[in-house]
């Protein structure tokens, strides 16, 4: 049984002063998240990531389509016993302390006093807030509030954890801590469904990703497959090649960029690499580097987005990784 099944979810928002126009935030989204995987929902701002998560928690209602979490319908509130949710830019009752927030959340799950005390202590340790347990949330930093948000999402020991932009607003240390926490959840065999526009986080954490843009699913697959798809070019860097050599090389390369004494060539197929190297050796030009160019998730992301947005097309050059 999939952890999350999304079948044709569409969401139209009414916009404008008289709410007469509609804006499509999500268009027939089709997704399936398997148990135990870390799944990343990627996309720029306004892509429909938060709308998807809000639909899953019935904070907004779909215009059409259905979804299930752990095989249960979304209107079955009992499914919330098995899930945790960190909203985007979380805000909690700021008159509560960290510890009180977790007790409050735990009581909503009907947890007993002793069990709750044990869990709160463990989770505060897990998210690095043990020494701030008595700190009121109104005096906590943004990073602490984010961690408190993750802690309250874990209080019921959920099977599936939904995190909406968990790294937003965190400093590098905070981001590292949240990353470690997600990795820890993966080790505990929990399903993690998180949205982000920070690609490096997705690259580090996700088993599979889906890419959304303007409500449309642009692609979905295993990260390593996506990242290995584009190992199709090779970068060759030459030192001080003469103009005659460059003229000979120009037909063989995809791009040619001169930076000071060095020239960076990007070559698409193996035969041309051999020819390039032969020309360079014959002209006694020093080959400073030769690297395969991998497609980063960022390149994939930009390429996918450019399919629906020609004006923001991906750069012609593929960045070396």
């Amino acid at each position: 049984m999939p952890a999350v099944e999304i079948d044709g979810l569409t969401k139209d928002y009414r916009v404008g002063f008289w709410k007469t126009r509609t804006k499509r935030a999500l268009n027939s989204l089709q997704l399936q998240v398997e148990p135990g995987e870390v799944f990343g929902l990627l996309g720029p701002n306004g892509a429909g990531k938060t709308t998807t998560l809000k639909i899953l928690f019935r904070l907004v209602f779909p215009t059409s389509g259905t979804a299930r979490i752990l095989g249960r319908r979304l209107d079955d509130v009992a499914v919330h016993y098995s899930v945790g949710y960190l909203p985007e830019h979380p805000y909690f009752y700021d008159h509560l302390t960290m510890e009180e927030l977790l007790h409050y959340a735990g009581r909503l799950f009907g947890l007993g006093k002793d069990d709750l005390r044990r869990r709160v202590g463990r989770i505060l340790e897990q998210v690095g807030l043990a020494e701030f347990r008595d700190l009121p949330l109104r005096r906590a930093s943004k990073g602490m509030v984010q961690r408190a948000g993750i802690a309250q999402a874990l209080i019921n020991d959920p099977a599936v954890v939904f995190l909406d932009e968990p790294m937003t607003g965190l400093d590098p240390i905070g981001r590292r801590e949240v990353r470690d926490l997600i990795l820890q959840l993966r080790e505990e065999k929990k399903t993690v469904f998180f949205s982000t526009h920070i690609l490096s986080d997705a690259e580090t954490l996700c088993d599979r990703v889906a890419i959304l843009n303007r409500g449309h699913l642009q692609g979905c697959g295993e990260l390593r497959e996506i990242l290995s798809l584009g190992v199709s070019t090779t970068e060759v860097i030459l030192e001080n090649p003469g103009d005659g050599v460059l003229e000979d090389l120009r037909p063989l390369v995809v791009s040619l960029i001169r930076t000071g004494d060095r020239v960076r060539l990007e070559i698409a197929d193996e035969e041309n690499i051999e020819k390039t190297l032969a020309i360079a050796l014959r002209a006694r030009v020093k080959v400073a580097a030769l690297n395969p160019v991998k497609v980063s998730l960022e390149d994939y992301f930009l390429a996918k987005i450019s399919e629906t947005e020609p004006e923001t097309a991906a750069p012609a050059e593929v960045h070396p990784k």
Partner: peptide
């Protein structure tokens, strides 16, 4: 307005 309702309604609360 403060979005605290998200945290409550994501728990098993009708």
């Amino acid at each position: 307005e403060r979005r605290t309702v998200y945290n409550i309604l994501s728990k098993p609360v009708t």
